[in-house]
């Protein structure tokens, strides 16, 4: 069991390195897909079937979307040498070394692998089947004990969707490739706003700020 787990983890590390070093982005995305699917097997070995299923579904969606992205924006990484690459490697290496020191400290403070469940876990495991009627304790936690967390998760997903829609929308956006359109519509058009109307908002705001000054005095 431990040997299988370690072999899978080595596969994950090697697959991630391959994914980051490949020049062909389509191959890189597929390599990350392999890493994600291997990760779901690791979750299964660690006694987490719910997470394994979720990981497979999420991985398939992510790989599909990333393949669509690389298909639209080009599939190869430009290999031209850049002076900044060396700086990035040295700075990145320095940051990683610092984090390595922290990580060794943290890992040595962790309990031994496989040493057991935490205190609240005991409470959940003993009481969840009787209190909630759910035989799967993970879903009992998600939907009963910590339902507000799940509500927050749904909120985050909704926010991400709204954000993606806002970023990708077409109307009302100054797209660079489009021919420049002068402000206020095409010249001489019927819907050309009158100068008086265009002047109105600044005057209005100036008047309002004067009123505020008077009030402050």
């Amino acid at each position: 069991m431990d040997v299988v787990l370690i072999a899978l983890l080595v596969l994950l590390v090697v697959g991630s390195l391959i994914a980051l070093e490949l020049r062909n982005l389509l191959s890189a995305v597929i390599a990350v897909g392999v890493v994600g699917l291997g990760l779901s097997i690791v979750f299964l070995l660690l006694g987490a079937p719910d997470i394994a299923i979720t990981q497979v579904v999420v991985e398939v969606i992510v790989v599909t979307v990333l393949i669509r992205l690389t298909g639209r924006t080009g599939r190869t990484v430009d290999a031209a040498p850049d002076r900044r690459d060396a700086v990035a490697v040295w700075l990145g290496g320095g940051v990683l070394l610092m984090l390595l020191g922290l990580m060794i400290h943290v890992l040595s403070a962790l309990p031994r692998f496989g040493s057991g469940a935490s205190l609240p876990a005991g409470h959940y495991l003993e009481n969840a089947p009787a209190q909630t009627g759910a035989s799967n304790v993970v879903t009992a936690i998600l939907l009963d004990y910590r339902a507000y967390d799940t509500l927050g998760e749904a909120t985050v997903i909704l926010t991400a969707i709204v954000g993606a829609l806002v970023v990708l929308r077409h109307t009302g956006r100054d797209v660079r490739r489009a021919p420049p359109v002068p402000r206020g519509g095409p010249p001489g058009g019927a819907d050309d706003p009158k100068p008086a109307e265009r002047e109105l908002p600044p005057q209005h705001s100036a008047a309002r700020s004067r009123d505020q000054e008077v009030q402050h005095v």
């Binding site: 990981q55 935490s118 876990a121 959940y124 495991l125 969840a128 967390d149």
Partner: peptide
């Protein structure tokens, strides 16, 4: 049984990672 609490929270984290 293994600890169910981190599993429940990681399940949330995976889905949020998808949104990110």
């Amino acid at each position: 049984s293994v600890d169910p609490l981190p599993q429940a929270l990681v399940l949330t984290s995976i889905v949020i990672g998808l949104g990110v």
